[in-house]
Each structure stands twice: as C-alpha cells, then as structure tokens.
Amino acid sequence: MESRVVALSVPDAIKVTRNGEKIGFTNHDPNGMVDQIASPLRREVFNRSTSMMKSVFNDESDLEEGKLEKDTDKLIRGGKLVKIHNQAVLSGLAYCISSCSMILVNKFVLSSYDFDAGISLMVYQNLVSVVIVSFLSFWGIISTEPVRWRLIRSWLPVNFIFVGMLITSIFSLKYINVAMVTVLKNVTNVITALGEMYLFKKHHDRRVWAALFLMIISAICGGITDLSFHAVGYAWQIINCFLTASYSLTLRRVMDTAKQATKSGSLNEFSMVLLNNMLSLPLGILLIFAFNEVDYLINTPLLRMPTFWLVVTFSGLLGLAISFTSMWFLHQTGATTYSLVGSLNKIPLSITGILLFKVPTSFQNFTSIIFGLLAGVFFAKAKMLERTQSSTTAK
C-alpha cells in the first residue's frame, strides 16, 4: 500500500512543479519588453523565440510527464500483481495450516485426552463459531442475513446432513489414524460424481473416472494393509463419505430456495456459517441426551482441567478459521486451484499424523496411502481440465 501511495504521489508532485515553472515563465509579460523594442523585426524575432521556447519547454515537460506516467503505470501494475500473488500465497497458507491443524487437534482431543463425547465436542465448537460470527456481525465487520423462520425452514434439511457429517467425522477420527481418514475421504468424490451423474445429468470424462477408480483401489488397499484397522471407525467413515456427498449435492438444490427466503435475495458464506452452526446447537443438544453423553460429562475429570478447555476452545477457533480462510483462498484464486491445493494438502497432513501419533504402519500401507493421496491430486487435475474444456465449449 505504501509503495502505491508513493508511486501515485510522484507524478502529481512533478506535475505541480512543472506547472509552477510554466506559470512563472508565462507570467513574464513579453509585450512589455517588446514595446521597448523599436524595430518591428526585432519584435517579431522576439515573439517567435519566445513561442519556440514555450513549445520546447512544453514538449520536454510533456515527454517527461508521459514517461513518468508510463513508469508509474508499470509500478502500479507490478505492485498489483505482487499484491495479488502475495494474497493468494498467504490465503493458501492460512487455509492449509488451519485445515491441517483442525484435524490434528481433534485427533489429539479424542485420542490423547481419550475424550469420549464427540457430539458434545461438536456442539462446543459450533457454539464458539456462533459467538464469534455474531460478534463480528454486530460490530459490522462482516454482513450476515437476519435469521427468519422461513429461512430456517428451508435450511433445515441441509443442516441435518451437516450435523451428521460433523458427528460421523469426529467418531471416525477417534478410531482411525489421520492418514487413513484422508485416504478414505476420497470415496466422497466417487459418491459425489455418481450423484451428479444421476441427479444433475452431468457427464465426466475418462480422466475423472480413472482418478475415481484409483481412489477406490487405494482405499481398499489402505484398509487391507492398515495395521490399526478398526471396523467401527471404518463404518463411521463410510457413513461420513455418504453424508458429505449428500451435503454438497443437497446444498445445490436448497440454495435457490434459501436465497428467496432472505431479505436481500442472496446468501453469503458468512450467513451460511452462522446458519449452519446456530441450527446445529439444538439438534446437537438433543443428540447429547440421546447418546447418553450427559453422564460421561458429569463424571469425567477432563472438564475440570483448564488445559483441556484451552485445547477444545482452540479447536473451535480453528473450525471457524477453516470457513474464513477457505472463503479467502477461494476468492483470491479459484475453484480449480482451491481443489488442487486441498488435495496436495492431504500429503503433509497424513505424514504429520503418522509421525505425531506414532501410528504403526508398514511399507505396503504407507505406499497405499501415498498412492491414494496422489490419486486425489490426479482427480483435482482431471476436474480442472474438465472445467477448462467445458468452458471452452460453452464459448
């Protein structure tokens, strides 16, 4: 920002200086001097020389100003490109760090603390998000749509799936290591692609289907070679894949109805974050009683540990950070870059999860994990090419 201000102020200052010199020059009245010259020839010579000096000076100043303006435009354009590039890199790093940290912190809470109330964890994290988003909206830092009954009624189907998606993710993460969770999440892409084909009549090219096939193979091989295989955890993760795919497919249908239920006729990302987290609270509280987590919460000593509250509050902040950084990154780049970086992000996440939590693994299992993660990258690249071809055909 400072470089832009300096660049813009330079030509303005020079222009003022040049104009001052011009005014100083033209304020000298040549006619007074010419009147003192008796000869008409001398008067004509003096007038011509004066006009020539004026034109030469004007040309020099115009050339200097034109050159400076061109240089300034280059500086501004270069500054804009650097700024956009820096914003994209910064937003991408923020998104990767927040998404990786969220999964690792949740795994730490569920495994290292051995916290056995996943629904309560989800409710507390969503409560943190509601408080912060409401605070930012109250002070006008962000804009959110007012929550009305018509909007709630249209959004409830999506919210039920959203709550189920979060709970099954937490349940699976308790039993499965981080690396296998990331590989099994690729199954979501397969289910989503099939849903798009049957519900929206969308056809995918061979590269996409090849990537999806590789994902299925890697998930099967990863499960077979998983030394810490847990049937309950795998069951929760498969359910999570179906719910995650259903959420993305249902969201497309509900969005139009939800927009009509708002005052402005639109629904931004902040409103969706607030709406999802707010509506999840009463449903989550009901599920806490249904799964009998109340007795566990009363008896567990973890709720009397300040460090535990610090960690779970931090996890809630990370959950909200994912929403903000993903929107920021998506705005700075695009859907293709966003999906590609998200796929690449799983590779360091999986390796970090194996090292941090000392997951027992074999060469075969590690190879299947890397194979599955690379299949995810291949899928993102195939989708990027598919979008490019479809946009070219539409034009």
Rank of each mutant, 00 (worst) to 15 (best):
E269H: 14
I97N: 08
F308N: 05
Y124G: 06
F135L: 13
G20C: 07
F314V: 01
G92R: 02
N292M: 13
N31A: 09
K259E: 04
C96V: 05
L68M: 13
L286P: 03
Q332M: 07
E21T: 15
F379W: 03
S266I: 12
I119W: 00
F270Y: 15
S350L: 00
G195C: 07
E65K: 09
N27W: 14
V178L: 05
Y175Q: 12
I37F: 12
G222I: 00
K15L: 14
G284R: 00
I37C: 13
L317G: 05
F371M: 03
Y175V: 08
H85M: 12
F291H: 05
K263S: 14
I76L: 08
S390T: 10
I298P: 10
T144W: 06
V178T: 05
T257Q: 15
G319D: 06
F324G: 08
S343K: 02
S266K: 14
T250F: 10
S343F: 01
A335W: 07
H203M: 06
V34K: 05
S264F: 02
A394V: 02
A179Y: 01
L136Q: 02
M384P: 15
A245F: 01
K358A: 07
T168N: 00
R148E: 02
H331D: 11
G342V: 04
K346P: 02
M53Y: 15
F314I: 08
V133G: 09
I216Y: 06
K70D: 15
L121G: 00
L317Q: 02
Y124S: 03
E21K: 15
Q260W: 13
S172F: 03
R148H: 11
N365F: 05
L303G: 00
L356H: 06
K67M: 05
R387N: 11
E44H: 15
A235V: 10
V254E: 14
L385Q: 05
C221W: 04
E386M: 03
P348K: 08
A235H: 08
V294C: 11
E386R: 03
S343G: 08
V158W: 04
G24K: 12
V147W: 11
I322A: 03
Y95E: 01
A210R: 12
L267Q: 00
V187S: 05
S246F: 01
T244H: 07
M165K: 11
F200A: 08
S91W: 02
T393E: 10
V377L: 05
A7S: 14
I322W: 01
V294Q: 13
M215N: 02
F324L: 06
S172D: 02
P146V: 10
M33T: 15
M197A: 04
T50C: 14
F324S: 01
L212Q: 07
V341R: 01
T325L: 09
G92W: 00
E2H: 10
S390F: 10
G223L: 07
I216N: 10
R48M: 06
L75G: 09
M180Q: 06
N277K: 01
M52C: 14
F329W: 04
N186C: 05
S228D: 07
L63K: 14
F378C: 05
Y234L: 09
N177R: 03
L156T: 06
T300D: 02
D205H: 04
V109G: 08
N58Q: 15
L349G: 05
I176W: 04
I97K: 09
N292V: 11
E145G: 06
